[in-house]
Design a protein around this nucleic acid. Structure first.
Lengths: 237, 237
DNA sequence: CGTTCTCTTGACAAGTCTCAATAATTGTGG
DNA sequence: CCACAATTATTGAGACTTGTCAAGAGAACG
């Protein structure tokens, strides 16, 4: 499942294939070396393993190198609500900055690997790397307006279409196909994230398949008509 | 409606009654003076007036001095979705950091006043004021995990209870009563924010009134039983 | 190869939306 | 200052989307 061999885990930010995605965007060779020294550990996690839990002290950020992660909170009902999915090249762990303790739990949803970036050294490095601070603010604030708010006023079909388009876009960004990929998460996880029942996801996928908009077999999905998916996202059909 | 007289608008961060809420938290007198010099303009807006629009260049943050603001996006359907409300002492405008252009539109929902904080000078000031950077990250990341995601998996009643409790808590924080206040927003705005129909809000409020949990007359609301409201938020009743 | 988990599909129930009418409030112009 | 218009809020009836419960099929796992 993992796309990275062990030697790949030893590589530096400078030759990381995701360098144009996570933090190093816009940094020159010199800056990259500085940043690379910060990235302390590169770690592999199996499905279900936790990166951190609610309440754990925050002292570093994480970037996905391969695989996928989800973040969850215990909601008022006492159930786990999925609040985010993270794909290769994406940064997570910001939730801990405010209280110096994590507000969410993060775990691998398949065998995955991450880079760890100590936060205090990172902040100190903003003094030496001019663009790093803006870069950081950028990455954080991008997550400030997540799809969550937008999901609320949409139908189940619109939400699912938006979700699939989001995955497509993000897989494309990290170099995979935008039309054919494996869903890293289960129907139940998608449902939870979108605020729907798993059965509804199943039915909607069947429906989209019947219309020829996509092909799906278990986790393997092919998006045949991105444009129509976009139309569904917008107008509901 | 406005709680501030004109002279009040000339006051400095150091003697602002909201100083312990917005940016200055934890700063000493010396730092406050530095910060105060940054706060360029204090401005009054009437109901409906825009602070900024989607696409407008971002170069400053805003704190609410009095009144209330909402931020909206044009969703896929072409309708305005409310993504946030801001009460006195709260900071907004972060949405523009990433793209250097605002991702949302911000407007006053009643006669209100704001302080403007130029962003670049603020970032430069983080070099001189040690705690300011963490403070900033703190405030931004607090908004990263908004109620939005949590709202999704809750019933209409749970969402409304959560919304009222949130308002209560925030009004308390800025020195108002936590049990009696005027809703700054209309039923329709509440509905939009919660992803419900305005009629549903009306019915739920009537229902909560019938149970003695709150009294409501137009915008004026009295929360008689915060605890039971909390119970509803959690278990649905 | 059986156990477990995930996914699919159906029938029914329930929550919420839409449409519509009315009432109350606010704003406006004479 | 009053009367009319426009907006906002309430309430009801019916429809529709989505959730719940249940059963069964298929895949994954040990």
């Amino acid at each position: 499942m993992t796309n990275l061999s062990i030697p790949a885990l030893r590589q530096t930010c400078a030759n990381c294939s995701l360098a144009n995605l996570c933090l190093p965007v816009g940094l020159d060779q010199e800056d990259l070396k500085l940043l690379d020294n910060l990235v302390a550990k590169r770690r592999v996690l199996n499905k279900g393993e936790h990166v951190f839990d609610v309440g754990h002290p925050f002292d570093r950020l994480f970037t996905v190198r391969s695989g996928a992660f989800k973040t969850t909170v215990l909601n008022a009902d006492g159930k786990q609500d999925i609040v985010g999915f993270y794909l290769p090249g994406e940064l997570f762990g910001f939730d801990g900055i405010s209280e110096r303790k994590h507000q969410v739990t993060a775990q691998a949803i398949k065998t995955s690997s991450i880079c760890e970036i100590p936060f205090e050294p990172l902040l100190r490095a903003t003094g030496r790397i001019p663009d790093l601070l803006r870069q950081l603010f950028s990455l954080i604030s991008e997550q400030t307006l997540p799809e969550a708010a937008i999901r609320l006023n949409h139908t189940a079909q619109q939400r699912l279409a938006a979700f699939l388009l989001s995955l497509s876009k993000r897989f494309k960004q990290c170099g995979y196909s935008e039309t054919e990929f494996n869903l890293p998460m289960s129907r139940e996880e998608i449902a939870n994230y979108l605020g729907l029942a798993p059965e509804t996801i199943s039915r909607l996928l069947t429906h989209l398949y019947a219309e020829g908009i996509l092909s799906i077999n278990r986790r393997h999905i092919i998006l045949n008509d991105l444009e129509q998916l976009q139309t569904i996202h917008c107008s509901g059909h």
